[in-house]
Design a protein around this nucleic acid. Structure first.
Length: 584
RNA sequence: GGGCCCGUGGCCCAGCCUGGAUAGGGCGGCAGCCUCCUAAGCUGUAGAUCGGGGGUUCAAAUCCCCCCGGGCCCGCCA
């Protein structure tokens, strides 16, 4: 029923080499210590203290049920008995209810600490201390044969959000795009560009060039001669022929540029691009084949090398994992192994964002990497995005391109802005761009990756409720209040003394942010972050409704709380790659 | 046929890893709230056999088994 706290503590670097403990971490540690002591004293036993995360019942709860057996007492009695000795600077009060020990955090202490921490850390509030660990996040890695469609866009959005999360969680992060420059897709594209004379329209290269790919694909299907010519390109690439590889690169360059333009518009940039062919050129694929054929699992069928994966629990047809063809040339997965060996040399951890269709391949590669005794990557699989009428298919013209979705979302946002406020056109354009693209990112990232998505325009263009604009709007409201208060308005550390229900609720949610960074990064679950951002915005809206800020006799404290909310919302949006607008 | 994943009010999603207190949100429906810090907001209301069935347990949406429905995969393709 209830979530548990993240296993490890969240701490931050505050100022110069001074480490501070985030409020809820301190609260939790205090409870752990007090509980362990009390349980040992009362029942003479050591149990692992598991606390439940904040809920409507308590800010932290300890279920006494598991203790009932050893303590030979009812959970209710245990709770009552343990409640007596619980105190500390963070623990405001303890209640024994229904066999639970419910802890409440001290609002005074929380108010003081949260406000000073947010003030001191600013746009680093929520960040965790450096772990001295590096991680490479591989994402997108789309075949550069045409523009991104909405289905493929799930990959960069998940990947980029994960990369941002890891950075905040204290890792040194690099993102990589693995460029498949040896496959049939790019070879087909090259053939098309060389042999076809098409009139193409559009102002982005990926949209112009995809027509060559599509037409060439169709030609290859009906003309064996064409198919042979394409296969010849692939063959030469696999042999590492620099001329062929250069030509392929020249062909896909424009498509890739177009893809990157689209990604840039949704605030995604990728640190480095790694060409698959380099592992052939540099001979590392051959080394992989060499090393694996010496392993006890190697076998041959015809001239083709394979690994027998039966000892690893792989059965059926998949147990023979082929590394080469009969002619000795490498296969996609073999080159992927070489890529991972290379990656393992430059980072401590590897995370790969992959479509669920790559599950089997990833499993096989993982086993090979285990045999080679190197870093095994952590995969994050996502399910496909389909349309109400079925699977997305470029060939059948049943796709929604990311660029079209962006256009539509931005245009719709623009209409909304014009409808609501009178602002200069330039401002309206800016807001519309950030609202529209933010809505797209949020709409995709809020759903857990393993859930299949059916794309519906009305969901994608929803600007209310669980959406980016809802969160952006709360942020804009904060900014508006702060703007009106003026420079002198917010003193950094007013005496705390929050007592309104909504003030305290908001304070608690702000304080939870570092824990969300910790847990969602550890579980590679950006959807949890998206949910948090919505909760924070919703809690602010309640505060906004019930607590007048400007002109109230508590103006100073409340302004400080608004400021802390604004910073936390901005940081959460930054993690989601969504613009924190100051006005909407 | 085999493997992996998903199945929570009309619709979409969280909670499942690590079992516990009235199953949370959002959209849509209905009824309301702008002389007051931006109504992309807020309030109320109706609506749930947590796909079905067994099992484990003091306790199951959560763990185990079986079944049903959907997705993905099962090339010397990428």
């Amino acid at each position: 029923m209830h979530r548990q706290w993240p296993a490890s503590a969240s701490r931050c670097r505050c100022g110069f080499g001074v480490y501070m403990t985030y409020p809820y971490t301190a609260f939790r540690e205090e409870i752990h210590t007090a509980l362990a002591r009390a349980i040992r004293k009362e029942y003479g036993t050591d149990v692992a203290v598991r606390l439940e995360a904040p809920s409507e019942h308590a800010d932290a709860a300890f279920p006494c049920f598991p203790l009932a057996g050893v303590a030979k007492a009812s959970p209710r009695d245990i709770a009552r008995r343990l409640a007596a000795g619980m105190e500390g600077e963070w623990i405001d009060r303890v209640e024994a209810v229904n066999g639970y020990l419910n802890f409440f955090i001290c609002p005074e202490q929380l108010g003081r600490e949260v406000l000073s921490l947010v003030d001191a850390m600013g746009d680093r509030f929520g960040a965790l201390e450096d772990r001295g660990t590096s991680v490479i996040v591989e994402h997108t890695s789309a075949n550069p044969n045409g523009p991104l469609h909405v289905g493929r866009a799930r990959n960069p959005i998940i990947g980029d959000t994960l990369a941002r999360l890891f950075r905040w969680a204290g890792y040194r992060v690099e993102t990589q795009f693995y460029v498949d420059d040896m496959g049939k897709q790019v070879a087909t594209l090259l053939w098309g560009i060389r042999n076809l004379d098409l009139k193409t329209e559009g102002d982005k290269e990926d949209h112009r060039l995809v027509a060559y790919y599509q037409r060439a694909h169709a030609r290859a299907a009906e003309d064996e001669e064409v198919d042979e010519q394409i296969k010849d390109i692939i063959r030469r690439c696999e042999e590492g022929d620099p001329e062929a590889l250069g030509a392929v690169k020249e062909a896909y360059r424009g498509v890739l540029a177009g893809i990157l333009q689209s990604l840039e518009r949704i605030n995604i940039s990728i640190d480095s691009f790694v060409e698959e062919s380099r592992f052939v050129r540099e001979g590392t694929v051959q080394q992989v084949i060499q090393r694996l054929q010496e392993s006890p699992y190697a076998g041959r069928e015809g001239g083709a090398l394979y690994l027998d994966l039966e000892p690893f629990g792989v059965h059926g047809r998949n147990k023979k994992f082929f590394l080469t063809r009969t002619d000795g040339t490498s296969l996609y997965a073999t080159r992927d192994i070489a890529y991972h060996l290379w990656k393992a040399q430059q980072a401590d951890r590897l995370v790969n964002v992959l479509g669920e269709d790559h599950k089997l391949e990833a499993q096989l590669v993982e086993i090979a990497l285990t045999i080679l005794e190197t870093t095994v990557p952590v995969p994050v699989f996502y399910s496909f995005v389909s349309l109400p009428e079925g699977k997305m298919s470029t060939r059948r013209g049943r796709v929604v391109h990311l660029d079209d979705l962006i256009e539509e979302a931005v245009e719709r946002a623009h209409r909304e802005v014009k409808k609501r406020r009178e602002v200069p056109e330039e401002t309206a354009r800016h807001i519309a761009e950030k609202v529209g693209t933010g809505a797209i990112r949020y709409n995709i990232v809020k759903v857990r990756p393993e859930k299949a998505i059916t794309f519906r325009w009305e969901d994608a263009l929803n600007f209310e409720g669980q959406s980016a604009p809802f969160i952006q709007y709360a942020h804009a409201r904060c900014c508006s209040i702060l703007r009106k208060a003026g420079d002198a308005g917010v003193s950094p550390l007013p005496g705390s003394g929050f007592d309104h229900l909504q003030e305290i609720r908001l304070l608690k949610t702000i304080a939870l942010f570092p824990d969300v960074v910790e847990s969602s990064s550890q579980s590679c679950n950006p959807a949890a972050l998206a949910e948090y951002a919505h909760t924070l915005a919703a809690d602010f809206n309640l505060f906004y409704r019930d607590c007048q800020v400007l002109g109230s006799d508590r103006e100073e404290q409340r302004l400080a709380l608004v400021r802390a909310t604004q910073i936390t919302l901005r940081n959460a949006l930054e993690l989601l790659g969504i613009a924190a607008l100051e006005e909407m």
